[in-house]
């Protein structure tokens, strides 16, 4: 049955509408759970607040388990699911740039807009920097095109690279996630900081 667009159950336009509704819900939940505070987000890197890790990893493993069960029941054809192609070099460089920006600015792109919507000035500065970065990247594209396209690996998934069954990898992922939550909560006790 799913994916709904591939099987022409809904049209791409309806899909955009649904995406808009989900996006509004996502933004609302992000804001109401405190993700518009750059201190909360940066706390991830200092150890005093690991909410980011817990929320996003819980979302990831919930979605993963859900999709695997949908596939098991024959509701969803996973071979039609979009897998982002891997360019190893640009993934590492881009990840570093994004990570540094995350620590320095205290936002990731999504939460920056979330914070901007409630009128935070630091978020405005962050979004300004984001736009600046986009302009620099696109205008200077010929300079880093080679690096951008280096080490193309196709669309591998982790379980294919490790050559283990999908389900076993999923179980491992869940266990790793809960181990990280445990470490995170230990860190929160170890490096406490006042709630702002």
């Amino acid at each position: 049955m799913a994916p709904l667009i591939v099987n022409e159950i809904i049209s791409p336009d309806t899909n955009l509408l649904i995406a808009l509704l989900i996006g509004i819900g996502f933004g609302f939940v992000l804001e109401s759970s405190g993700f518009s505070s750059s201190r909360k987000l940066a706390g991830m890197f200092y150890g005093y607040d690991t909410t980011v890790l817990k929320v996003f990893f819980t979302a990831a493993i919930t979605a993963m388990v859900g999709m695997l069960f949908f596939s098991l029941f024959g509701w969803m054809d996973l071979s039609y699911i979009y897998v982002n192609p891997t360019y190893l070099t640009s993934a590492m460089v881009g990840g570093t740039v994004m990570g540094v920006g995350f620590i320095v600015g205290g936002f990731c792109p999504g939460t920056a807009f979330c914070a901007l919507s409630i009128g935070k000035l630091d978020a405005l500065a962050f979004v300004g920097g984001l736009v600046l970065g986009i302009i620099i990247f696109t205008e200077g594209y010929p300079l880093w095109e080679d690096m951008y396209k280096a080490d193309f690996m196709g669309t591998p998934t982790m379980n294919e690279l490790l050559d283990i069954p999908r389900g076993v990898f999923a179980l491992g992922m869940i266990l790793v996630a809960f181990a990280m939550f445990w470490v995170g909560e230990w860190a929160e006790k170890k490096f406490p900081r006042e709630e702002y």
């Binding site: 069960f69 024959g74 179980l171």
Partner: peptide
């Protein structure tokens, strides 16, 4: 909360790890 989530997700993960892939092809 973590215990509740863990007690739901870990058994599900074990089930997913135990069943073969693609048991049903529509």
């Amino acid at each position: 909360m973590r215990l509740i989530i863990a007690s739901v997700l870990i058994p599900l993960g074990i089930i997913i790890a135990a069943v073969p892939e693609n048991t049903t092809k529509p």
